[in-house]
């Protein structure tokens, strides 16, 4: 029954998405392409011709692309778990409408995360295709990097849902992106190896979930050695997803069932 109910939440979200996807298509699909063009190709030329090539021993675009795959998944997961969730809780109160039916809070949260999973599948498949077109990976290796990217996105979606469930207003959402998501985006080994960071920051970078997503995606997409033991990375991201989901369900219940 629980699965059926969560499935209905996915169904409804898909319907809403069918009406609203135009608004998110830029951030979802064009931004990664822009990053690949702007940073991968243009900045890449500078890096490859300069001293950067020594540190990387692969073209910069190739280095960047899988990291961006993981980072894009994080952005998608965090994005779908912030403003839309706040709308469900507070602005539109559509979650109250759902909870007046036989659907429970846990089923609602699971359905919401499952829907984010579907969105992540779209986004990562498209992105992986773009990577292949740019010559940064092969079709097969690009496909291998999709599951860890989705896992990364889902882990963020779960923990950010839990965070949003406690927020009184949207100020907390802008702070989350300004002080949480953006720094991760920039400093989790996406744009440059974290060995380039000051040594005292490196342990922090190692501890961020995005770094583990980047390591998995890069290892699989490029067929190179993983920066971190992949078992550790998978365990970390699965734990993030599990803890995030439990917290999200609990905090959402506290918020919605007064």
């Amino acid at each position: 029954m629980a699965l059926v109910h969560s499935g209905r939440v996915v169904e409804a979200s898909a319907r809403v998405y069918r009406r609203t996807w135009r608004g998110s298509v830029i951030s979802t699909f064009f931004n990664p392409v822009l990053y690949l063009l702007g940073m991968g190709v243009s900045l890449g030329r500078l890096v490859d011709e300069g001293t950067g090539s020594a540190a990387l021993d692969i073209p910069y675009l190739t280095f960047l692309a899988p990291g961006l795959l993981a980072a894009t998944a994080m952005m998608t997961g965090a994005g779908d778990a912030s403003w839309p969730v706040m709308a469900g809780i507070k602005w539109r109160k559509t979650y109250d409408a759902i909870l007046s039916t036989p659907v429970t809070v846990r089923e609602l949260v699971m359905g919401h995360l499952a829907w984010v999973g579907v969105r992540l599948l779209f986004v990562t498949v498209v992105y992986s295709g773009v990577m292949t077109v740019f010559g940064a990976t092969t079709v097969l290796e690009g496909a291998l990097a999709i599951p860890p990217a989705i896992l990364t996105g889902l882990g963020f979606a779960a923990i950010v849902t839990a965070y949003t469930a406690r927020l009184k207003n949207e100020l907390g959402l802008s702070s989350l992106f300004r002080f949480g998501v953006m720094p991760l985006f920039l400093f989790s080994g996406t744009f440059f190896p974290i060995s380039q960071l000051p040594s005292w920051i490196q342990p922090i970078a190692y501890a961020t979930p995005l770094y583990h997503g980047v390591s998995l995606c890069r290892g699989l997409a490029l067929g190179v050695e993983f920066e971190v033991n992949p078992a550790v990375s998978v365990a970390y991201l699965v734990a993030l997803l599990a803890v995030g989901t439990i917290l999200a369900a609990r905090l959402m219940r506290r918020r919605l069932i007064a």
Binding site: R8, T94, P102
Partner: peptide, 19 residues
């Protein structure tokens, strides 16, 4: 607390599905 982006019909449909 309707789904404002959806149509009248769709609002009723998704609600029925929850039941």
């Amino acid at each position: 607390n309707l789904d404002l982006e959806l149509t009248v019909y769709e609002n009723l449909l998704i609600y029925g599905r929850y039941f």
